[in-house]
């Protein structure tokens, strides 16, 4: 589904990613773990085309897509859920979803009703301005918004950041349901327990390089890597 090969990404002059490579197979949940500033978000942004890598390449569904415009990637089924929940604050919940609606590629795609069935809490606040929602509601909305684009691959950047345990549990269940429905997910997380429960495989990133790669179970048992790069 997704192949990232030796990418180097910069913000202006500062070199952030140093040859990051990773792969995500169809139907998998793969997590990208790393502490603050490790380069998780930058990796996500590179894949989505928001800060394209200067070298290396990214293949999506077998086709090289490095440097493509984000809106074209979104139309090809790449869904992006940004860190720190960037909802369209000026629009209502319903409007956030409406403008994100993409063309279904085959048969039934996501529409507002289906998204509201999936996140019933959002239905109740359909006409509320997104800027006035709680953190948990905003997080649901950013995921719902990405679903409206009918993604095949979902890039989820720290969905549990700053949320209460109860809401994290709910989101975890919903992400697991998305996987069951056949969605592929790349999940950036700092919350190790949630990430390892959800994912099949894990990458650990630190200082812009991948330091470890293995199944989630292997990482769970590898105390050395966890202590060295994740401080847990």
């Amino acid at each position: 589904m997704l192949q990232v090969k030796e990418i180097h990404t910069y913000y202006g002059l500062s070199h952030i990613l140093f040859g990051v490579s990773l792969e995500v197979g169809k139907g998998e949940i793969v997590c990208l773990l790393g502490r603050n500033g490790a380069g998780k978000s930058t990796t996500m942004r590179s894949i989505m085309g928001l800060t394209p890598p200067r070298s290396g390449y990214i293949k999506y569904k077998g086709v090289t897509c490095t440097g493509q415009k984000p809106y074209l990637l979104a139309r090809q089924g790449m869904g992006y859920v940004p860190d720190n929940r960037r909802v369209f604050a000026d629009l209502t919940v319903g409007e956030n979803l409406e403008i994100s609606k993409g063309k279904p590629k085959d048969g039934k795609g996501w529409d507002k009703d289906r998204v509201y069935d999936f996140f019933p809490d959002l239905k109740k606040i359909d006409s509320r301005k997104a800027g006035f929602l709680s953190g948990g509601e905003q997080q649901m909305l950013t995921i719902a918004r990405a679903l409206m684009t009918n993604p095949d691959l979902l890039l989820l950047d720290e969905p549990t950041e700053g949320l209460a345990p109860l809401i994290i549990k709910m989101l975890e269940e919903q992400i697991a349901r998305l996987k069951e429905s056949g969605l592929t997910v790349l999940l950036a997380e700092q919350n190790l327990s949630v990430a390892l429960r959800l994912s099949d495989r894990a990458y650990v990133i630190d200082n812009g390089s991948i330091r470890y790669h293995g199944t989630s179970k292997e990482l769970q048992e590898n105390d050395e890597v966890r202590q060295k790069y994740l401080c847990v």
Binding site: M48, L50, K69, P70, Y71, A74, R75, Y80, P82, R86, F88, A89, D90, L91, E95, N96, E98, I99, S100, G102, R145, A146, M148, T149
Partner: peptide, 24 residues
């Protein structure tokens, strides 16, 4: 109108508007 709503969203966060598949 849809374009009006998109314009209001783009006024605040054009990058995210592109990321949901809209040709900004």
């Amino acid at each position: 109108t849809k374009i009006g709503k998109i314009a209001r969203a783009a006024a605040v966060d054009r990058e995210m508007v592109g990321a949901v598949g809209i040709n900004v």
